[in-house]
Amino acid sequence: MSTVLERLDRLPRRNLTVLAIKGLSTLVPGGWHNITSADELIADVMGSNDPELISQVRARADELSKARHEGYGRALSLYDAVNRSQKAAGGLRVLANIGGALPLVKRVANLTPTSDTLQAVDLSLKVAAEMLAFTQVNGLPGDSFGDFAAALNEYAGEARVRMAALICFDALLPLGDQALERLDTLLGKAGKGDLRQLPAYAGMASMLPGRGDDAHLSFLRRGVDQWLGWAGGFTGQLALSGQKAVRALETTLGPWQGGFDQMATFLDAFTDTYQHTGVQAVARRLVERAAAEI
């Protein structure tokens, strides 16, 4: 299995994913820099270009990411599971869009999961993956709940573009501008069947606390409740909306004539935003630790 920094080095410099994130990052103050080189990241954290130091940090980081208990690798497998599921679901919906036009394959269109409920469950899985990955990467920092909340806020602030992508691509575009308000109702309607339909769930089930689908579903709801408070504030602060997101994406991806939900489907099927920014976020935390330990 490749280490976190090897994965970082292999990230694309310019493709659809990068363009989509770049476009969206115009909405977020501070912007986004696509770091795809481990050496560059280490030099940035250490504030030094000394090749000897960089190779020491790198060796330590590789050692840390190979140790299973340290959780860096586990966080990446969470992101991978979510990404695979998103691609599979997105691909099916693209097929349905094409298939809807052809009488012979119309039946495929009826099979595809497009309901709002399913989309809401998918979003809640992503939020849960984000929280689990946070504890895998950072542990439970600080001695009090206040410390922990501050750590979470710090992480979310660092991952602003990533959170904006989550909110826009997985909530506002597919579910409409009232997505965050509707989310709880939608999740209330979700049953075990909806959960089972999502491939990401199979990959994450063992890492979610509680036994059985019902326990997992209630964990997801509680997780989303926690996240909604923060996401609502963030959305209000940046005045995010589906319209704004599409306009921002048009600056890099070119003009878009379809609907918002089609844009969401397109992004789901053809980009890896979640995985891409996930690898970068984990790599930064890993390098910060390795730099402190050498």
Partner: peptide, 14 residues
């Protein structure tokens, strides 16, 4: 002072 990571044998803050 914001604590960012806490693991076995390691604690980091910003």
């Amino acid at each position: 002072l914001v604590f960012t990571q806490e693991k076995r044998g390691f604690s980091e803050a910003r």
